[in-house]
Design a protein around this nucleic acid. Sequence first.
DNA 1: CCCCTGCATGTTAAT
DNA 2: TTAACATGCAGGGGG
Length: 932
Amino acid sequence: MASKICMNGLCGVSSSSEWRKGWAMRSGEFANLCDKCGSAYEQLVFCDLFHSKDTGWRECTSCGKHLHCGCIASSSLLELLDSGGVNCIGCTRSSGLHLAPSDEEPKAFSMSTENNVGEMQSTSMDNQLDGGNADKMKVEQLGNCADGSNALIHLLPSQNDDTNVSIGQLKQEIAPSPGEFGSTCITKFNQASIGPSQNAKVDIYKVTMGVKDVYDSLSQTKLTIALGAPSGNPNPFPGAVVEERELSKTISSLQQGSRSQHLLPRPPKSVLAVGMDTSANMVPQIRVARPPAEGRVKSQLLPRYWPRITDQELLQISGDSNSTIVPLFEKVLSASDAGRIGRLVLPKACAEAYFPPISQPEGLPLRIQDVKGKEWIFQFRFWPNNNSRMYVLEGVTPCIQSMQLQAGDTVTFSRMDPEGKLLMGFRKASNSIAMQDTHLSATPNGTTLSSEPCFSGVIENVPIMSGYSGLLQSLKGSTDPHLNALSKHLNSASGDFSWHTPERHVGKVRDGSLPPSMLGPERKRSRNIGSKSKRLLIDIQDALELKLTWEEAQDMLRPPPSIKPSIVTIEDHEFEEYEEPPVFGKRSIFTVRSSGEQEQWAQCDSCSKWRRLPANILLPPKWTCPDNVWDQSRLVMGYFRCSCSAPDELSPRELEILLRLHKDFKKRKIITNHRPAQEHEPAGLDALANAATLGDNISDPSATSIATTTKHPRHRPGCSCIVCIQPPSGKGKHKPTCTCNVCMTVKRRFKTLMMRKKKRQSEREAEIAQRNQYIWAPRDDVEVDSTSRPVTSRLDPSENEARLGNKLQSNVECNSVSNNLAETGKGQIDLNCHPNGPNREEDSHLGSTRVSMMSLLQVASLPLEMYLKQNGLTSLISEQQASSGSHVLPQVTGESEGQPHEDHCMAPVVEEPESGGDDELSGPDQSQNDPS
DNA sequence: CCCCTGCATGTTAAT
DNA sequence: TTAACATGCAGGGGG
C-alpha cells in the first residue's frame, strides 16, 4: 500500500484502518498527490457504500490498485473477473476486454427499463452555468488519475484555480450482471470529455455494487428512472459542493433508505448544448450537498449530518454578498436540544471538523449568524465523556425560540467564505418530516410506495426506491416554495419518473388516492419513533394507515407454534413469554359448537370454500383443501373434505352469518379504535404505560405527537409490555416510594383511573341489573333474534361495548394472541400484553389461577352455552343447528365478539378496556364463580 | 425551590 | 464491540 494514497476511488484502500489512514492524509490539503494516481487528496469523495458491510472496495487483481465499487458514476471503474477478483479499468483496457464502443452517442439521462439499466448523464458543466446566472459555478477538477478514468468532479466554490471544465456527458447504465458477486451491475461510463484536456473514451465497466439488494431490486422492479434536465432554474447552488455522482448517491440513498437527497433541477441549456434528447424523460438530477472536507476531519461525516440546505436558504443567507456559502452540516433537534436547557449537542465529527478547535472544556464563544442576519453568540464547548468528548453549543435557547424551533426541526450550519463566518439556518419539521418520512410516498404515476421502514411484508421491491419516494414525498409536503416547485416539476415529469413495479399489487400497496393531508402542509404533526436521526417521523395519518395495515397483518399473526409459553410473573401480572416471535398464519375464524368444542374455519386458497378445522392448529399463510390433513377421513356428502370438490360445509346462510360477523366485528373495532382518546381511556397497565410514556398528555395525542423518544421503535405509545412500562432511560428502576415526575404522574393517573373505573362500574352494575330483566324476559324474542338477526344487535353496539363483561373481554384479548383466534381484540401484536387484559381488577376474578391461552379460550367460549342453559335458554347454536340441519352455527369467538346475541355477551371487543364495566353478563367467572 | 452546570448513564448506530 | 449521543440527575448557587 502506498504511503500516500488518495480516496478518489481508484486508489482507495480496502480496510478500515487503511482507509482512515488515507483519510487522515487529507489533512495535507492540496499538499499531497496520490502516489498511485497522482490526484490531490482534497477532492476525496467518499463512497456512500462504504458503510455497507461489504466495504465496496476491491483490489485490482492485476495492478493492486484499490477500487471502490460504489462510485458508480465516477471512478469505480473496475471489471469483475470470471476467475474472481477485479481489474481496474487501466488493466482492463490494456487487456482489451470489455471495451465499449468509443463513439457511443451520448444520450439523455435515463434509466431504461429494458435492461433494468440505469443511465445517468451529467451534463456539461459549462452548460450548468447559465449565462444569466451570476453565480458562476466554479469547477475544479482535481481528480485526474493517470489512467484518465477518474471522473471525480467536484463543484466547489473556488478557493483555488478557477477551472471551468467541461465535464461532458456522464452516462451510466446499470444492468444486472451475473457476476460472481451476484450483485453486480454494469456501468457504462461515458465521458465524452472531462476537462479540456481529456477525452475519455466510452467504456463499459462492471461495477460491483456491494449490495445485493441493488441487483435484486432492480430486476424485480424493472425500475425506470429517467433523469434529465428540466426547464429553468439555473444552477442555484453556488456554494455547495455538488456531487455529480447521482446514481451513486441514489443507490446509496436507497440503501440508507431513510435519507433522501436534495433535488435541484438542472438548466435546460446543459442538455441542449450537448445535443441530448430533451423531449422526454427529463427530471431534475439529484444533487447532494456534501460537507466540505475540512482538514481536521478525523472521520467521515455521517450522512445524516450532511447538509441539505436548499439553494433558497443559501441565497437567503448569503443575500447580495458575493460570499460563498458552504453548507457544513445539519442536525435534527432532539428534545434536549430544543429544550429549556439551551444546550445543543453537536455531532462530534462536525464540531471537530468545522468549529474552532478547543482544548479546554470551557471552550470558546462562537458567533453565529442566523438567516435573518442576527448574530448569536453561543458557547462552544465540550464535556469529557467516555474518554471522548461531547460537544455542545450552549445558550441556544433564545436562538431556538427565535426560530420557533422544536424537537424534530433541523438546524443547519454553514460557513460564509472567505470570511469564515458561521451561519445557522433551520428547517422546520414539516419539511424534515417529509424528508424522513418515507413510509408513504406517492409516485407521480399514482402509486404509493413504501419504503424501508414500512412493514416489510407489505410492499415488495420498493425499498430501493425509498430515497426517491421519500424525496418526492418531501417535495410534495414541503413548505418550501422552491421544493414545492420541484415537486410540481417532478409531477409534470411523471412520464419519466415512473416506477414500474410489476409486483405492485402485492400486499397493501395503496392506490394513488392519498389523502391530501398526507401530501400537503398538514403534515406537521409528527411522531417520533426510534431514536437519533433514524427516528421515523410519522405523520398522524401515516400512523393511522400504518396501524390499519398493522391490524390487518395482525389477522395473520399467531404465537409461535409448538412452543409453550413460560409464565412470568412481573409485579403481580402474569405474562406468557414466548421464546420465539409470532409467526404468520392464515386468517381464520373460530367458532364454538354447542358442545363447547372449538373449531376453526378457514377458506381454501384454491376453491375458496370454507373448511372446518380443529381450533388448535396453525394454518400456513397459504392453505388449500388438500392441506386439510385433519379432515381427510371425513366423508361429507360423498366427498372427502380434504378435496376442493367437496361442497361447502356451511350453508350459504351460515357462511353469510359468519362473514357478516367477521366484517361487523372488524368495522366496530376500527371505529372504536379511531375514537378520540377521551373516549378511549385505557385502564390498568395501559393507563400506566400511557402515563409513563406520555405523561399527562395522554388525553391529547396531538400534544405528544412530537414525542422525541420511545423505548422501542416497534412499540407504540400505550404498549404495556415490560419494556415500555419501565421508566425512561437513565432512571433505572423506581422504588414504590419514588416521587419523581414520572412516578408521580403514573400514580396520579392510576389513581384517577381507578376512581373513574369504580364509578363506572357501579353505574354499570345498576344499569345491567335493569337490563338483565329486560333481556331475559321474553325467550321467544331471543330465539327469534338468534335465527333471524343473528348478527345485528338489538341494542346499539356501543351499548354492547359498554355492557361488555370485562372478564370475557379480557379473555378474548388474551385469546387474541393465542393460536386459537384469528382476530385480535386489540390492534397489537405485542405478545407481552397482559394475558388477562388490561384490567387489573380482573386479577381478582381469576384469582391466582395460572392463565394459559388455551384455558382462557376455553372459559371464554364455554360460558355462553352455560349461561344460556342456566338461564333456561336454548343454545343459539342448537337452535341454528336444528333449523339449518347443519351441526354447527359459527358462534364466533374472539373474532366474533360482535356475536349475534348481543345480550349474551359477545359484543365486539375492542380497545375500550374501561367500557368493559364489569362482567355482569357472562364470562367464565360469572358462570363459574357466581352461579347466581 | 428553581435553575444551571457538569457529569453519568442508557440506548443506538456504526464498525 | 465501540463510539456517539440523548438525556437523566446530583450538586451547587441564587432568588
